[in-house]
Design a protein around this nucleic acid. Sequence first.
DNA 1: CCGGCGTCCTGGGGGC
DNA 2: TGCCCCCAGGACGCCG
Length: 293
Amino acid sequence: MPELPEVEVVRRGLERWVAGRTVDAVEVLHPRAVRRHAGGGADFAARLTGETFGVARRRGKYLWLPLAEREMSVLGHLGMSGQLLVQPEDAPDEKHLRIRVRFRDGAGTELRFVDQRTFGGMSLHESVADGTDGYEEGLPDVIAHIARDPLDPLFDEAAYHLALRAKRSTIKRALLDQSLISGVGNIYADEALWRAKLHYERPTATLTRPRSTELLGHVRDVMNAALDAGGTSFDSLYVNVNGESGYFDRSLDAYGREDEPCRRCGTPMRRRPWMNRSSYFCPRCQRPSRAAS
DNA sequence: CCGGCGTCCTGGGGGC
DNA sequence: TGCCCCCAGGACGCCG
């Protein structure tokens, strides 16, 4: 389940293995993998052929490859189970291979998008300036609404706090709202809330500025720890751009630890159904406030 | 306008 | 053993 740290590991792989290479041919093997591309698979392949990739960029869980000679970018999202692999051209196709990008150089490798559950995909979009960065970053127009992520030096912390105070929502919802702060998924939300000793249904409007600053610090800490470890991997579905599995799950304090002792106080951790998914928390360290159930 | 929920998808696992 | 149902969840669309 790739979140920001895993996507960043993939971005680094793309920067190293794909930047500067020119596309020779593209094969779209599953239409759902390009469902976000307006013209469909054939159009995606035709438009990409002959183009040269720039340096991969990332915002939250989205990553994109700017085209060197156009104000356009190839947008990628890994969804739940997506992988971007740089493989030898003669390596056998993966079972869930969805898109293949061949290159014109003689490097002997190709880029593959592999995705079992097909929540992810690739698509080509116009680039747009967002007011702070220029066209050279190639931000795809369709993700202009995605907020900067907490590891971005230009993340607007003051605006984030103001938005939290203004919302009539709860903290975990707000952490997962990609238009407020991007890159946080279910796993790191639970981890950061556990570290901050905050209940997932704490109303955002009750968070003081110091408290929300502290939470943000925990979000950054848990993401940086995962980055240092090379990305989190839970079910071997996630593999980085070179096909190496991440590792980090041993370090999780909350996610997936139902009935296991809290690493702070020993109380059995709980799992609660929440928004068609789960929230893991310590019932003692993370007490709900009066307004929450 | 915005919060909240349904939907997409597939393989693994649990229960009967 | 085999089958069925549930579960995982990111992001978007729609409803109230």
